[in-house]
């Protein structure tokens, strides 16, 4: 026993240290993934007997308008959420100066990320609220007639994304601020001697050095966009008539909400969402793998 331990100690120790984490990961992430896939082949209300229906849930999904609305909204979320990356960068560059009181300004800009998404959602719903909302009154003043953003199926998703961008930009900003701290001053100095300034400096000198920060910012933004749930739930509950649903919310509605309890169908939506996420996640992992092996 002890001879075996002596011989393999170096190989075993890391696994032993990782064992608690791996066990948790297996129990709470890996196994539920396969359970979800399994449930998605059943017709089950969570109470009675589950009935095997094969791929019927997926067949129904293909013909479900609400599913396509959610999917479309998820794509809009993904695309528009990416605005957080350049916007966060701009604010970070703007704040990366040495002026007295800068720490205060930085923390004020970071503030929206600290408060709960639920609070952000509530604030923006009041902002958009008909009759007394600031934005509603502004629209009324400018255009003559107010629009209740959250009650209009054309604008509702954009209204929620705007609310989501607010904390997300702050998050990206903080990532870039730490990244800017690590920008080598001698390179900036050298570039300046060579006559680089403005956009040239940003594009060819600063940004390449910020690549790790950009990578993380894109990853958290993609994941944030795909798992957007709390804002939809707080601000509209998926409405009006389901036009602001995203996949994660639709899954919750079908499987767990007051009018739902179609566990199988909800699981099928979760599997689709998982597949979409896997697409991005494997992309990221592949990139990380490539970067590490290149070095």
């Amino acid at each position: 026993m002890s001879a075996f331990w002596k011989a393999n100690q170096r190989r075993l120790a890391p696994w032993l240290f990782m064992a608690p984490g791996l066990a948790m990961f297996l129990l709470y992430v890996i196994i539920p993934i396969f359970q979800s896939i399994w449930v998605s082949f059943y017709d089950w209300d969570g109470l009675g007997d589950a009935r095997w229906i094969g791929t019927a849930n997926y067949v129904e999904l293909i013909d479900d308008d609400a599913f396509y609305i959610s999917l479309k909204n998820n794509v809009i979320w993904l695309v528009l959420y990416m605005l957080a990356v350049p916007a966060g960068l701009m604010i970070a560059i703007f704040l990366n100066q040495t002026i007295s009181g800068m720490r205060l300004y930085k923390s004020l800009f970071f503030f929206p990320f600290v408060i709960s998404q639920v609070v952000v959602g509530l604030m923006f719903s009041w902002f958009y609220a008909p009759n007394f909302g600031l934005f509603y009154n502004l629209l009324e003043w400018v255009t003559g007639s107010g629009t209740a953003i959250l009650a209009d199926d054309r604008y509702v998703t954009y209204g929620i994304i705007a609310a989501g961008l607010w904390p997300q930009i702050a998050y990206v900003m903080i990532l870039y601020l730490t990244g800017l701290n690590n920008v080598a001053p001698d390179q900036v100095e050298a570039a300046r001697l060579d006559g680089a300034k403005g956009w040239q400096m940003l594009w060819y000198v600063i940004l390449p050095q910020l690549r790790p920060a950009t990578f993380i910012a894109v990853v958290v933004t993609v994941i944030g966009a795909l798992r957007s749930f709390d804002l939809v739930s707080i601000m509209t509950n998926g409405g009006p008539f389901g036009s602001s649903r995203v996949l994660s919310f639709y899954m919750y509605e079908q499987a767990l909400s007051e009018y739902g309890y179609r566990m199988g169908y909800g699981a099928a939506i979760a599997v689709v969402l998982f597949a979409i996420m896997m697409l991005f996640i494997s992309g990221f992992i592949w990139k990380m793998w490539r970067d590490e092996t290149e070095r």
């Binding site: 958009y128 609220a129 008909p130 009759n131 209740a148 959250l150 009650a151 209009d152 409405g239 009006p240």
Partner: peptide, 9 residues
């Protein structure tokens, strides 16, 4: 003749 923004309230 129904309240216009009913979906928001």
């Amino acid at each position: 003749h129904t309240t216009k923004n009913h979906a928001a309230i």
